[in-house]
Amino acid sequence: MDKNSAAGSRLVELRDLRVAFDGVQVLHGINLDVAKGEALGLVGESGCGKSVTWLAALGLLPGKAMVSGSVKLDGQELAGGPRSVLESVRGGRIAMIFQDPSSSLNPVLRIGRQIVEALAVHRSLRGEAARAEALRLLDMVGIPDARRRFDLYPHEFSGGQCQRLMIAMALAGEPDLLVADEPTTALDATIQAQILDLLIRLRKETGMATVFISHDLGAVSQVCERVCVMYAGRIVEEGSVADLFAAPRHPYTRGLFDAIPRLDGGRERLIPIPGTVPNPKHLPKGCSFSPRCPRAEDGCREARPPLLALDNGRKLACFNPVPPVAKTAVRIVEEALA
């Protein structure tokens, strides 16, 4: 396949993607590229537009949503195209898995049949060939004793195994991109680690790109190479995991890091971000984050900072960014004061 020779080139291009519900704009012009085989993380609090971005791109939002902008897959425009184009892409070239796997599986169908169905739709496999391929997928995602459990119903599997089943179904179409929307949030820590491990391994084995949507920066840093931080329907910071985690520049990104309780160290007070995500109906003037921002100046409340490119692929939308110093500076100061 030409998958490897084209590595590094753009697989998906989102340009000026906007979404409004009932006249209220919730997504304000997202520009985002996903390269072939890349693992991209999308982080931010709930209500920042992480999921809406990809639901809009795949045409999965309800009819009342007004979507505009461009969504290109390998240069082919998907937005506003005929239904048939989107349907050949969804589940085939781009697959999506969600937080709650049990609500995405049909409870009254045996799981083997559900996967065989996906293989029939996306790869026209029938009969023994479909069954053999389904078993291979179940093995691949780590369902033990797949042959014997082929004819079980979803409720006979645990939450972690249901997520594995969802991933197997997503793989049925041999997608070029897997969009995983909070896939581990509902799982226990030990099972979460298994699923993250699985996602990393599958990407290595199949070469598919992964978009990992999560509010858990820890999980994102393990799966992804690049991260976009979203706030109130916009991307506010973007960069490689290594750079961005070493020195977050946007005060919001910094706040997200500082808010994570630590396992090492003492029994400490946590460092919250004050306030909440603004209601899209009443976005604050200027920078949307300014009312919660410890570094906001007068100018931040007047004008909105554009997303500008820094060096080595980093982007930042902030007038008064965190200076690029060691990431634990705040902690060190606090410990010294305590």
Partner: peptide, 26 residues
């Protein structure tokens, strides 16, 4: 030990950590 090890820490890779195999207890 496995529980503590399974907590994702930002900036640390999964490799080298103890990942508990098997299913949650029934």
């Amino acid at each position: 030990q496995a529980l503590v090890s399974s907590v994702p820490v930002p900036g640390q890779l999964l490799e080298g950590r103890v990942i508990l195999q098997g299913e949650p207890p029934n």
